[in-house]
Design a protein around this nucleic acid. Structure first.
Lengths: 307, 307
DNA sequence: CGTTCTTACGTGTGTCGTAACGATC
DNA sequence: GATCGTTACGACACACGTAAGAACG
């Protein structure tokens, strides 16, 4: 068995079982990939793919297992290459970060900026996705690591390092009755139409739980995956927004009034996650440190706290 | 990079940095292995080996890291092959067990026997070593798993599954004064010359600790890595033996009197350990189950207990 | 001077690419 | 009939083996 074969195997499953697309991705021709699969199946003496005529439609049970180990094997070879790269040129390369809109828009900018100053030779790529997608992206090595609040810590194949904790704030148009009250309660919030994040995003799970625990049902008239969208509709007068405090920018959001709600909801913890056993290049480690540092230095005004 | 290169790399470090021996082990000629190393170092752009003239004497820092990941990569390819083998012929292959003398001589025989009946096509290999060696053997894939009481559970790269717990017994020639007493104490033991295991073997650590905790110093006149040796010298009248209860065989040891000491010492737990992430073939899993089963069925007379 | 690794060179295996064929939608 | 995969064949690359050379003990 050789790594070629494994590469074809993985490319094949990631291309949705299309031999031609896999070949293209590998800069090879179709027959080459076919041959690789043939060789593996011959060597193992087992069918790895379910076939419908000549077409491949899925993995067999054995195939699933083999793919699992093949992924790991290839990941290790990437680690080896990275170790090498790290010693020839410590400060150049590519850094691929997966994250959510909110992070990319409100938390990352100063970090990215500082990182780029420190490592101008490193090409930065930011990929966005849902928390579930971010998990997949980290596992499939589409990004070097993913940053978000949900789902990362639970996955057994990911190492998740906590970076900071945050909570929510209410935003509303000036003069809104809720803003008059000294002490806000969850119950009070239930009297008004709310706008917040969709399920699976930015702590929406704990948001709903907090209400449920008191037997309350908030009236969420609109939910979005994106803080900017929420703000927009708050400005339209559709309701009051409940957003991550860090997403309130005093300058641009002068027309909205913010009110801290950290007494009402549990704190959320944002983490950086990467596959277990992955070798982190020098500048990747530095990015993580920088991320944590930036938060502890400049984050307090926005309600961010180090873990 | 290809697996060839990694194989040569590992063979090279395992042969003590001798290119010729590495080549021999791989069924290749020296120049081939040299070329592999050359290729890797070229591709990574870094020296992997420390050289003294032409001779290789050790790994560089980078080399150490690369070896670490190369080992994992190769382990994954072995997993793939095993997955395949498991599906073409579930019940034939090789089973390599590393263990200590005591296990091999007193605990394993019935297990081996039962296993051989169940899987006559599987070739069994028992390798012996010290607990430290057993750890290395498991990590370097010289055995499929190691069985012993010490060191296995602590290692971060090994999965250790507990199998049974055991304790010690005293053995002495008939008529020995210690045997007259109803309740033995550690202090009483200190009055007589003792014979037991050497450090690092068969629970010797906890043995000594038990005395130390009470501020006692036992007079160990002889220590051996091997229960049979202990028995021999007990028969010579050199002292009383303290051995794992499971190593007392009523038939052959009729001339020695045994006395249970499980009240005096902590229980020891014997485990089976294999590298984390290793794929276990069907019959390997069965062996572990069989091992645990045999103990719970036939072990009680010998003071063995399921965990 | 033997041992050990490197360099140089030839050969063969094997991988990839081109091209034709077969199957499936 | 267009797309997608397999089979067949040829060319080139490259990995391995042989043989000779250099450095070290």
């Amino acid at each position: 068995m050789e790594l070629r074969n494994l590469r074809s195997l993985i490319a094949l499953v990631e291309s949705g079982f299309s031999v031609s697309r896999a070949a293209e991705q590998l800069h090879l021709v179709q027959p080459a990939v076919s041959q690789h699969i043939r060789h593996m199946e011959d060597e193992l003496g087992v069918q790895l793919f379910v076939r419908k005529g000549k077409r491949l439609t899925g993995l067999t049970g054995v195939g699933e297992q083999v793919v699992q180990y093949a992924r790991k094997a290839l990941a290790e070879t990437h680690n080896i290459l990275d170790v090498g790269r790290d010693h020839v040129e410590q400060s150049s390369g590519v850094l691929r970060v997966g994250t959510t809109h909110t992070q990319a828009r409100y938390v990352l900018p100063p970090v990215i900026n500082a990182f780029n100053k420190a490592y101008p030779e490193v090409e930065l790529q930011i990929l966005q996705g849902t928390p579930q997608q971010l998990v997949e992206m980290a596992l499939d090595d589409l990004v070097d690591f993913s940053i978000c609040t949900e789902d990362l810590a639970e996955h057994p194949l990911l190492t998740a390092v906590p970076c900071y904790k945050w909570n929510r704030s209410l935003i509303a148009l000036p003069g809104h009755p809720l803003l008059e009250r000294k002490r806000l309660t969850l119950k009070a919030l239930c009297n008004y139409p709310l706008i917040t994040y969709v399920f699976g995003f930015t702590g929406r799970g704990h948001f709903s739980d907090a209400f449920a625990k008191q037997g309350l049902k908030p009236r969420v008239v609109l939910s979005a995956s994106d803080t900017d969208v929420i703000k927009t509709y708050v400005r339209e007068g559709m309701g009051v927004g409940i957003i991550a405090s860090l997403a309130y920018t005093p300058k641009q959001d002068r027309d909205l009034v913010m009110h801290d709600l950290s007494k009402l909801f549990p704190w959320e913890i944002t983490k950086i996650a990467y596959p277990k056993g992955k070798y982190l290049r020098r500048y990747q480690q530095r990015f993580i440190e920088l991320f944590q540092r930036c938060v502890s230095e400049s984050g307090r005004w926005a309600g961010l706290l180090p873990v």
